[in-house]
């Protein structure tokens, strides 16, 4: 099975500040890490590859330093990865991003399965995965809990042996369990397909220092707009983005902590008064 996991580099902490004037994320001096939600999809990929044979490749879009994210996936067990990096891609919204990734996937080769995280911690839209599937014209399932190859052990063996990176789905379907409207839905999905993994579905493996040391530069590919099948700049970056951000602001923090340290009865009365005033009781 040839698997592609899409990942994103996000700020390393959740204490990111937003410049109140420009409304832009202050990324300077902030460490970055792999989007935590992507770790679950990566782990799903590694487990499927171990079980049925095959390899996991990774794909990301971002500035040049996003290579670090790919390196990390290699240290976790990916066979290779690609960074799509090009100034002309800057300012992409979810549509332009998913379109870029779709172009990247087409150029990178054929995959049986594409895995995405549920969402990212810095964008939180949960839209890029499904949109990528739409651009590629393949089926997708979101909030996935569990994946295995449909059919008996025999079929599974066959599938493992025949893993050739064939995008036509010659050997079958996946049995996918996913959360939907509070229910767990089990369905068959023909490959190639895209799955967005729910968070917490597994315990992602840790990056290995041995693997990290063994990374060869040729395992990390870099793509620009020039490598895409569609080279029309208007489809990418800011010009390919119909979404306009009107304003960006940090969520309001609730700072109001008050301590009542009078006698118990008095404090109780004050709390009671406060709760009534706020219409909580």
């Amino acid at each position: 099975m040839k698997i592609l996991a899409c990942v994103k580099q996000v700020p390393g902490t959740n204490k990111v500040e937003i410049d109140p004037v420009t409304g832009v994320l202050k990324r300077d001096g902030v460490s970055s890490k792999l989007n935590p939600y992507d770790l679950y999809s990566l782990e799903t990929g590694f487990q499927l590859a171990e079980k049925y044979g095959g390899e996991v490749y990774t794909l990301t879009m971002g500035p040049n330093q996003a290579k670090t994210a790919i390196r990390e996936t290699l240290a976790m067990g990916a066979a290779g990865g690609v960074v799509i990096s090009d100034r002309r891609l800057a300012g992409a919204d979810v549509l332009a991003t998913s379109y870029t990734l779709a172009q990247g996937v087409r150029s990178a080769g054929d995959f049986d399965l594409i895995l995405c995280g549920k969402q990212t911690t810095d964008g939180d839209t949960a839209q890029v995965g499904p949109e990528l599937a739409e651009h590629l014209g393949i089926p997708h399932v979101t909030n996935v809990l569990e994946v295995r190859l449909a059919g008996g052990a025999e079929e599974e063996e066959e599938a493992g042996a025949g893993a050739s990176g064939d995008m036509r789905g010659s050997y079958g379907k996946l049995l996918v369990r996913a959360l939907r409207d509070g229910l767990i839905v089990e369905q068959l999905v023909a490959m190639p397909c895209l799955l967005c993994m729910e968070d917490g579905v597994n315990t992602p493996r840790l990056p290995s220092y041995r693997r990290q040391k063994a990374i060869r530069e040729e395992q990390i590919g870099v793509m620009t707009l020039d490598d895409m099948k569609d080279r029309n700049e208007k489809a990418y970056g800011l010009s390919g983005s119909p979404t306009q951000v009107v304003r960006m602001f940090p969520p309001q923090k609730r700072e109001g902590k008050e301590i009542y340290d009078g006698p118990e009865e008095e404090s109780a009365d004050r709390i009671f008064g406060l709760l009534r005033e706020r219409k909580m009781i």
Binding site: K33, P36, L206, S208, R210
Partner: peptide
Amino acid sequence: KDVYIVDTEERKGSV
């Protein structure tokens, strides 16, 4: 046999 890197909040959490 190897050395695993526990570098982010999530990874520290799991270990």
